[in-house]
Amino acid sequence: MKFTGALLAIALAGAVGCGAAPARAQKQITGAGSTFVYPVLSQWSATYAQQGSVQVNYQSIGSGGGIAQIKAGTVDFGATDMPLPPQDLAAAGLAQFPVVIGADVPVVNLPGVKPGDLKLTGPLLADIFLGKVKVWNDPAIAAANPDLRLPATRITVVHRSDGSGTTFIWANYLSKVSAEWRDRVGEGTSVAWPTGIGGKGNEGVAAYVQRIQGAIGYVEYAYVMQNKMTWTQVQNAAGAFVAPNKQSFQAAAASADWSKAPDFYLVLTNAPGEAAFPIAGSTSILMHRQPKDAARTRETLGFFHWALEKGQAAADALDYIPLPAAVVQQIEAYWQANIRTQ
């Protein structure tokens, strides 16, 4: 009796297993990495799964984790906010290309100052984040803002407490505009902050800045829009003060010379364009050049091909900045030349 019962149970389990199998015949590709691209990647993957038979399973474990996972070969692609230099890529046998553009926007909390009122230059931002400019009525700030009467409030610097691609873009920009920042602090997904307090995630920084009078911080563009924060204009490499918006981010992406950057190793900060917003960066995808399973790589590239060509409206709706069409073409040529799919 018991024996037949057990047999029956096994048979039933088998039947259930077989029944489930056709539903799971959908091909799965997996990726891991940057938390910044997670919202748009999951949106793309949901839409793409409806249209085709490929399911993209993305784990937002952080850029560092994404790099480690793709190097170990446990995922089909990794995503990182900090592009890897070509020699690192070559050592690990990886190819790299950008998928979306993001930007860091300085936000402040000053009574009477409305979004866009305040103008800041790169060196000024570096001096504030170095702790050298301590009050809002500092002559250096006043010089850039002749029309504003700024209070004698103490400046409280707010930065990210967790390692983040947002911090990388910020620190990379400050390193480009300030030699002192480059020598004393440098760039990375987390750095040794000379001053200030750390908020966890964009939401933590946003909350601190909104709470503390005289605070200045940096958050991703989407958070500025969603939380209606007081953003500032920033002077770009061409000397113009620019507001952060999709046009100025795209101008930054368009003015950068991607064709000269091997493996798209290029950080968009301090881009030369007249209308370019200076604190932008891109999230890059990492894939193996000589994959063990070429079929999966084909599926993965198929997904990104669709995302870059058809998914940009969805990215736009989520406040990401799509790549310029010319760059998309360069990426597709790069795939053909560098990634084995047969």
């Binding site: 952080g62 850029s63 407490s161 307090i197």
Partner: peptide
């Protein structure tokens, strides 16, 4: 502001590169 051991680990482990 300060830091604690547990908070530092939770904050920084994911991106410890």
């Amino acid at each position: 502001p300060g830091n604690s051991i547990a908070a530092a680990i939770a904050n920084e482990f994911t991106e410890a590169d």
